[in-house]
């Protein structure tokens, strides 16, 4: 489980660099809009899965 957690950390770091490349290609406003959309989409995915996650992780 901790291995999966560190794997997600490493992939997150890698992909943060992948989207960091677009800092120089897009305008700053577009870049921050993309960051906003990305985190909001992740929150939406989590919200959709909330019922399943609560059932799969009882007690937390």
């Amino acid at each position: 489980m901790m291995g999966g957690w560190f794997l997600s950390l490493s992939l997150g770091g890698k992909f943060s660099g992948v989207i960091g490349v677009y800092w120089n290609r897009w305008s700053h406003a577009t870049f921050f809009a993309a960051l906003t959309a990305l985190s909001l989409a992740a929150a939406g995915v989590l919200f959709v899965l909330l019922r399943f996650l609560r059932k799969s992780m009882p007690g937390v």
């Binding site: 997150g12 943060s16 995915v45 989590l46 009882p58």
Partner: peptide, 30 residues
């Protein structure tokens, strides 16, 4: 909870976590 459900829950958390770290670690670069 069936073991497969636990694994799916972990995978979902990790994938969402990747998206979070993508945004969070912009503080080191951009």
């Amino acid at each position: 909870v069936p073991p497969l459900h636990r694994v799916f829950a972990l995978a979902a958390i990790f994938i969402v976590g990747i998206a979070f770290w993508m945004v969070f670690w912009q503080n080191g670069s951009t």
